[in-house]
Each structure stands twice: as C-alpha cells, then as structure tokens.
C-alpha cells in the first residue's frame, strides 16, 4: 500500500494549470444545473429572474433561492472538504485506502452527534460542529493509539486496520443506541445515510469559518505533504519536521471532516475516490492534488445530488446512497486500472 501512494516525480506542471479552468467550468456548469433542475420544472428565465429580480412572494423564486441554492452551496462545501480531507490523509499516511471514513473520523463525528442529540437531547445547532469535531478527534486518537500499540507501530497498514475496527465498533454502538432509543432515533435515520435534503443552511454560519480556515491551511500545507508522502526519513532529510506537520494536517482533516458530517451526515467514498481520480491527471504532487481534489469533490457531489433529486420523482433518494452506489464501482475501476 505504501508503494501505491508514494509519489512519482513531479510532472504535468503545464497540464495541471490547464485543468483548473476546465474543472472550474465543470463545477460552474453542474452548479447551475443543480439550481435549474428539480422536482418542479422551472423555465430558465424564472431561474435567472430569481437571482436578478428576487420576489419573495413568488414560490418559484423561493424554490431557486431558498431551497436549491443553499443545497447546492452545501454540496459544494461538503464535496470539496471531504475530497480534500481524503487527499491529505492519503498523503500523510502514505496509504491509498485512507479516507476520513476508513480511519474512523466520519464514524467518530457521527457517533458524537448521535449521542448528543438522541441521548442528551441536544437541540443547539451551534454546538453540533464542535461535538462532531470532538468525536472525530477522539476517534483519530483511538485509531492512532491502537496503531502505535501493535508490533511495528503506526504503519499505514496498522492505521487502516485500527481505523476499520474503530469504525465498526462505533457503528455497532450507534446500532445499539438505535435499539435502545428507537423513537427519538427516527429523526437521525436519513441523516445517518448522508443526505443533503432539508439541511439547515444556518449551520454554515457555525461550521463555515473553521472549515474555510482549515481549507486554506490544507492548501498551504500541501507542498509539504508531497515531501511527507516520500516517507518520514526522506522528509526529515529535507528539513521537514514531520511530527508537527502531521499534527497540523490531522487538525485540518478533523475540522474538515467534522464540518462536513455536521452539514450532511457521514457521506462515504468521496474522500476515498476523488483523490485517486485526481492523481490520474495531475500525478503525485500534492500542490495540485489538494486544489484539484477540492474542485473535483465539489463537482462530484453536485452531480450525485442532481441524480438523487431527479432519479425517481416525486421522491428523492438519500444522497449518501447514490454516492456509495457510484463511488464503489468507480473505486473498483480505479484499482483495476492502477494494477494493470
């Protein structure tokens, strides 16, 4: 696994630049499509009017501005942050299977939110991101401690196995809470599958600022992740203080993951698949992988959510279900392609 994630020499520099406007154009196109289509067919003129001549008494304008636009914004934020978090984790751990879900961060955040809301009856949204972050951080600490305690220390393999174990354990505890608290758990049923439907956009006020800081920090730290991905010895030989760098990157990943979970529930596969897709195009230079993953992750989740909203009208499918249904075969395809 270490070999698969190790960087090849930096390449594709000119090609990498050229991809940014293309990705931005795709993202913008999907964003507009996300706003233009939905359960109710709206003329394009109405969609445009909603932006430039908003009338709060016109329900079509309300659909565009109050229902579709916030959902599209949340899709962009969640998709970008999960993909970026996955890319950073794969670089830090030198493990191509690393992603926030596999290393227990998503489960930790979900577990903390479930405990806070269904057991302690938390109703204050402002606290939710902090609780999710505490859950992510706690899960990360447990995974790291377990991996350190096994013979050989915290290798990519031991981290992956510890992460899978912690995720499975927390999933089992969530199931147990479900059995003990069926009635109040009903409110979390869809959220736990990962969903963008009916999400409270005001949550962005609370999670947005720390996520933005973490996003910028991730982009700034990306060049050093390229060095780190060559191995601790090489990185230290090049003057990188690996311990503090890893701690900073872990903090970035925890904030991004917890914010995404607080916004949309535990969405899987984005942090795992998108960095691999990006790597096919830009190689192993994290200066490019990180921003590309953010853009591609945002575009991917927008596209997936469009499918979730329009696939079987009038109903909607939970976004997390579509994410997994597309992400799983895509990941298998990527693995087959790499092994050829």
């Amino acid at each position: 696994m270490t070999v698969a994630a190790a960087p090849s020499p930096v390449r594709h520099s000119a090609r990498s630049w050229s991809g940014v406007p293309v990705l931005l154009a795709i993202l913008a196109g999907l964003f507009l499509l996300h706003i233009a289509v939905g359960a109710k067919a709206l003329p394009l003129g109405t969609v445009v009017d909603a932006f430039f001549a908003f009338d709060s008494k016109d329900f079509d304008h309300v659909i565009v501005f109050n229902l579709r636009l916030p959902r599209a914004v949340i899709a962009v934020v969640v998709g970008a942050t999960l993909a970026l978090a996955g890319a950073l984790m794969q670089g830090v751990t030198r493990n191509p299977l690393a992603d926030p879900a596999l290393l227990g961060l998503t489960s930790g955040a979900a577990f903390a939110v479930v405990i806070a809301t269904s057991v302690y009856g938390l109703a204050t949204m402002a606290l939710l991101p902090w609780i999710a972050m505490a859950g992510s951080l706690g899960a990360a600490a447990i995974v790291y401690i377990i991996a350190r305690l096994v013979p050989g220390g915290a290798t990519p393999l031991s981290m992956t196995l510890a992460g899978a174990s912690v995720s499975a354990f927390l999933g089992a505890v969530i199931s147990a809470i479900h059995l003990l608290n069926q009635e109040t758990f009903e409110n979390l049923r869809v959220w736990l599958t990962g969903s963008l439907a009916g999400r409270d956009v005001t949550m962005l006020y609370y999670v947005g600022p720390p996520m933005l800081v973490a996003l910028l920090a991730g982009i700034l730290l990306a060049p050093r992740v390229t060095v780190l991905a060559m191995g601790d010895d090489v990185a230290q030989g090049l003057g990188v203080r690996t311990g503090p760098l890893k701690a900073q990157l872990l903090a970035v990943v925890v904030v991004l993951t917890a914010g995404a979970v607080a916004l949309a529930g535990p969405l899987g596969f984005i942090g795992l698949v998108i960095p691999h897709v990006v790597r096919l195009y830009v190689g192993s230079d994290y200066r490019w992988i990180v921003p590309y993953a953010a853009l591609a992750g945002a575009a991917y989740l927008l596209g997936v959510d469009i499918i979730a909203r329009v696939a079987i009208p009038p109903r909607e499918i939970s976004t997390g279900i579509i994410t997994a249904m597309i992400g799983a075969p895509l990941f298998v395809h990527l693995v087959r392609r790499r092994t050829r």
């Binding site: 359960a39 009038p314 109903r315």
Partner: peptide
C-alpha cells in the same frame, strides 16, 4: 390522489403548492 389508498408519499418541498 397519486398516492395509493392507505399509504403515504414523500414530496419534494418544491411541490408545496
């Protein structure tokens, strides 16, 4: 009336009216 007798269905908020 689109809903089967004795059942329920989930509608997108866009169909509120």
């Amino acid at each position: 009336k689109e809903i089967e007798y004795g059942k329920f269905a989930d509608f997108s908020p866009e169909r509120l009216p």
